[in-house]
Amino acid sequence: MRGAALLLWVALPVAACPLPAPALQQGGVQATWTVEAAPIVVGRHFAIQVQLCPTEALLVRVDATMPEHRHGMNYRPSLQRVGEGRWRVEGLMFHMPGRWQLRLDVQAGVATEQLLDTILLP
């Protein structure tokens, strides 16, 4: 789980695989992400940068939901490949405080892995 206060913008260096902890991991895929122009503010759009490992993996979908309330965002983020496993994701917006679950769908070879992270927005 990430405390929202820790979501400070740090330019992602070109990472060597495997990614150092703490990284999200599922199957053979790892990911880290950071917020541009942190912090995340309720009702304000934000973008994130994602680093994938292996670098040739594809980020195919990013979404976020509030599991307790069973609703998601009002926006569908767009994904832009920056290069060397880095992606920029734009158009996210958390319109309520509480627990949000960020989901990254990553395709690596024939498998698509789902990486989950939790953000608490006070």
Binding site: H45, H71, N74, Y75, R76, P77, S78, E90, G91, M93
Partner: peptide, 11 residues
């Protein structure tokens, strides 16, 4: 950014 990404749903 909102216009580019907003989605329509029955909700």
């Amino acid at each position: 950014v909102g216009t580019r990404h907003v989605v329509l749903g029955p909700r």
